[in-house]
Design a protein around this nucleic acid. Sequence first.
DNA 1: CGGTTGCTTGAATATATTCAAAGTTAGTGG
DNA 2: CCACTAACTTTGAATATATTCAAGCAACCG
Lengths: 253, 253
Amino acid sequence: MRSQDPARAAPRQIRCQDCPLRSLAAFRPFEKSELDFISRFKRGELVADRGATILAEGASKAPLFTVLKGWGFRYKLLEDGRRQILNYVLPGDLIGLQGTLMGEMQHSVEALSPMLLCVFDRDKLTELYRDHPGLAYDITWIAAREERMLDENLLSVGRRSAIERAAYLIAFIASRARKVGMDGPTKVEIPITQQHVADTLGLSLVHTNKTIRKLIQLKLVQWRDGGCRVLDLDRLTELAGWQGLDEGARPLL
Amino acid sequence: MRSQDPARAAPRQIRCQDCPLRSLAAFRPFEKSELDFISRFKRGELVADRGATILAEGASKAPLFTVLKGWGFRYKLLEDGRRQILNYVLPGDLIGLQGTLMGEMQHSVEALSPMLLCVFDRDKLTELYRDHPGLAYDITWIAAREERMLDENLLSVGRRSAIERAAYLIAFIASRARKVGMDGPTKVEIPITQQHVADTLGLSLVHTNKTIRKLIQLKLVQWRDGGCRVLDLDRLTELAGWQGLDEGARPLL
DNA sequence: CGGTTGCTTGAATATATTCAAAGTTAGTGG
DNA sequence: CCACTAACTTTGAATATATTCAAGCAACCG
């Protein structure tokens, strides 16, 4: 079968019009002119393995990406190696905006699973703002959404108890994953280790393990195959004292 | 002297051209056409007392503000009253963007001191994006800056020790205050109580008090007149293991 | 099969919270 | 001017929560 059709062997890229994400209810419909621009804005695709660094802190001319497939996370390090995971990135999420706008990345992004990313041409950003105010608005909207997620994460790390934090984190990620169709026929499976959870919640690995153990005993989650399977999203959400994700459709770059 | 000149007695508003913030080195210079638009975009001014709520969580048609004078903070509450302060707002900061773009406020903003705010007409935002791509870009930039501050705060609450957190917080606020000329001839004085600090750091009031006490013994800060006087910003920054604020000029709406 | 990564556990220690109370300061009204 | 109040800071002690240290176990991979 291999290479029988040269066209298929060539590095095929998903055309924006055919982007599987666009048909999801989670995303706003787009004007044709906007879609045309985005097609030109897309410079290529990037495939990354689990553990790969997509964007590194300190990089000064980092590109802009939209995640097409896979899971990743954004984090910062202190000088002695302490790590704080800031947020997770899922399909449809834009990454690298801070670096693109402000000149230097002040956080890193790493793949949690194999990822496929859409690479944008940051030099065309001025053109985007000039000719497509709707898309410009969308980019601001996406930035405001990230801010809102960070607000909630900060509330969690600062003020929720360990078990509430863990429940919140898992409910939050699982809710986002469901919105972009990552649950499929089975329950959502999140490819994170307990070390990732610890570094997100601001807890030690040992304490995180004991906390997750409680969630397992409550039959809210399972931990298997190096990841987390969500058994009862509603009860996790409730245990966290969380309102849940707001429901509106969002833009996709 | 009172009312001798009726023009002076009328509720004078600062014209954007005369805005005292614009002359600071911290802010980018603006095109005349942009300044003209901003003048029309400005709908009025709001004066708030210490303790006043500028924006309330749940509000759905909240306006957009730029702080002209005074100090405030952004926070979220859990249902049982636990409070997390997310960030502080100082002159030149834009507030209410999340609410304006996404429809509903998911955090509140309260005045820490008497404040003067510039109120913008959110209905003209579409016009701004359509006719002033440079300003649209600026708004995105401002959102990205807020995100960057939140990243750093989250790192702090999640991974720094109590004394590092306290040092970071005070150094961070003092650095921002200096940039907008709030230090004057003396050292920076931040009008916060230890309860604010506790709710920012994710610590209890008692533990916060004991931690601040250490900073006082190290002669890094003083606590007086219901506020914090910064004695040694460099050593606070160093103790926090913080890089300091990046130096570029930023946009002002 | 040996090495690596990730999960689990117990015990000792450190950090942080809660509870309770008292001291300080500034403002209010008599 | 003083008594009274409210808001904020300070302290000690008891308790709870979380970290660190130290092992051991399980699964996977070359």
